[in-house]
Write a protein that binds this DNA or RNA. Structure first.
Lengths: 125, 125
DNA sequence: CTTATTGTATTAAGTGATTAATACAATAAG
DNA sequence: CTTATTGTATTAATCACTTAATACAATAAG
């Protein structure tokens, strides 16, 4: 599955978000191995250096770890994953509330629209 | 009020978002005059060229218009403003629903959290 | 007419992101 | 031991964004 990148943001930051979201959602299974940087580079149509840059950052954040010649793996630290998931959700909600308030929505109106949109989405989860 | 920019995105794009949000929310009054590019550049701590680049884009989108030597103004086209407001809201909601679903939230759980966060915010609107 | 302010255009320089092309160290596999 | 694959590091080139320093055209104000 080819992933599209926007030019609005550096690719390595978009990669960070992509993988982080995968880890937080569990789509990337804890303890499982990631494709190598060269393989991911081909998959995403970017340079291996760019992939490396993103993964190293996620490693410093404790979401990934490396075994020297075996490859890179998703952390098995459930608490760490849960924490990141919580941070992502909090930030999403805060930003969303701020934006929608700024646009003049009220609470009831928003909840209705949201509930409707939720059903419309072909929800996998 | 000094505005902070992130290095995650080009400044001119952040300026576009800032002004567009102002127009869509009505914080920038329809028909009212904006500060000059030089003045805005000082206010935001950026280069006049960068401000110009952002405002020209918003002009092409029909949110602003220019009178040659008088300055730049917010459109008075209420329909256009309403349309942009709707687009912004739709995009916000779509992204939000997608993200929260991906993180494994269910609808009821989300609505509760959201309602709570809404009250916590020192809502101006 | 003169002056000041408006948007606009241009050029050069600096910075960061990205790519390409390598190379190296470590280790599992044969 | 040899080989292949892993992450990692380095160098140079290119491109977009940003800034700085101007300059110009149009017009309202004096």
């Amino acid at each position: 599955m080819p992933v599209e990148f926007t030019s609005d943001m550096p690719i390595y930051l978009q990669l960070i978000r992509l993988v982080r979201q995968g880890v937080a959602s569990g789509e990337l299974v804890p303890g499982s191995r990631l494709p190598g940087v060269r393989e991911m580079a081909i998959e995403y149509g970017v340079n291996p250096n760019t992939v490396q840059r993103a993964l190293v950052k996620l490693e410093r954040d404790g979401l990934l770890y490396t075994e020297r010649t075996a490859g890179r793996f998703v952390t098995a630290d459930a608490a760490r994953i849960a924490a990141v998931r919580g941070e992502l959700a909090d930030r999403q909600i805060d930003d969303f509330v701020r934006q929608m308030k700024s646009l003049g929505y009220n609470c009831r109106q928003l909840l209705e629209t949201l509930e409707k949109k939720w059903s419309d989405h072909n929800g996998d989860d």
